[in-house]
Design a protein around this nucleic acid. Structure first.
Lengths: 190, 190
DNA sequence: TAAAACCGTTGACCTAGATCAAGACTTTTA
DNA sequence: TAAAAGTCTTGATCTAGGTCAACGGTTTTA
């Protein structure tokens, strides 16, 4: 299990890598059930997690209380609201598991310790976070495309998403209604 | 001039602050003209800048080559594409000045040195970046609101934006046409 | 295992915002 | 300072996607 994280770090950051022993010391495995929340708006994000198996969605609430999906987290990616985690302030983001999920979790304190201790881990963290930021900016500008284009881009990025995520949640991420997604898919096939 | 940055760091991060001497050593003032680009898609972001005076817009290109504004940078904020700056990879983002602008700039190498040297500066950087990420995620979910609501939110965030940024660019940020913004403003007043 | 809740699909109709065109006003450039 | 280019506004028309309603299939819960 630890190897998955170690590999991910090493694949993303050239350098010495990180000892399994250190990972085992700083990270704790945790299991969550489908539909369970990892983080709720208003609470402080006290843990960050690396997805070993399973998936989740991140969503925010609109002014009328409607849930708007802003992203999905599959294997080999991090979950947790960076802003809340770093500043230890209440989160605006919700994270809910869409499958039974296994994480390697780390506390804010441990994460800070590891950052201060290892320049290599700092580099990895900076890279990862900057990529996550780029992704959300790309999604932002991507919303200027038609729903059909956004759907195609999503399928390119996550070819198997249809097998794992309901249309309802995909539609919410595309910022269209489930009805619109349904029609869009029909027209796409033909 | 350096004081503006020093104040900003100190206001955002409790702690010892940073010596003026260090700032002067690591940062270089630069002036740019209106319409000039700070960063263009495809190029590597070699400098980050702190806005002393002036403003700029960040935009990306849609699949049809249309410019889509993803944000504005006013005084006391950073400019530069974090992903390109951290990874020294080609940027997907463009940054263009909307006024004559003065920046305090820092090279990627100097920034890395300062991060490795000062835990305090690391903390500041982490906080700032996490806030920037939150902002783009908020904009992303915000696009599920009506154009009128988005416009109102923008005016709340930047009360003076109408005096400094053309409606064309505000419309692009709201992801509507200038015509739609014009009508929206008319209806808003009455 | 029956009832209730949820999900995807389809149809009919509606609306926010797009597109295209044109005129007045302002800014830039030669 | 005159011409050219860009900006804002308004009108007429169009369309992608929303809303509401209904039905069959599946999953959850009692």
């Amino acid at each position: 299990m630890y190897d998955k994280l170690i590999d991910h770090i090493h694949q993303n950051t050239p350098g010495p890598g990180i000892d399994k022993q250190i990972i085992a010391e700083y990270f704790t495995p945790k299991c969550y059930g489908k539909k369970e929340h990892f983080l709720k708006q208003g609470y402080i994000c006290r843990l960050a997690g690396f997805v070993i198996e399973g998936c989740s969605r991140n969503y925010m609430l609109s002014t009328e209380g409607k849930e708007v999906n802003i992203g999905f987290n599959f294997e080999n990616w991090w979950i947790g609201d960076v802003c809340s985690f770093v500043n230890q302030t209440p989160s605006l983001v919700n994270t809910q598991f869409l499958e039974n999920t296994t994480l390697l979790t780390i506390t804010a304190k441990n994460h800070l310790d590891l950052l201060n201790k290892s320049q290599y881990f700092r580099e990895y963290t900076n890279k990862l976070r900057s990529k996550a930021t780029l992704a959300s900016v790309q999604n932002l500008s991507g919303l200027s495309e038609s729903a059909k284009t956004r759907y195609r881009v999503l399928l390119e990025k996550y070819p198997k998403i249809q097998q794992r995520v309901s249309q309802k949640h995909i539609a919410s991420f595309l910022q269209i209604t489930p009805e619109a997604l349904c029609r869009l898919r029909k027209s796409e096939i033909s």
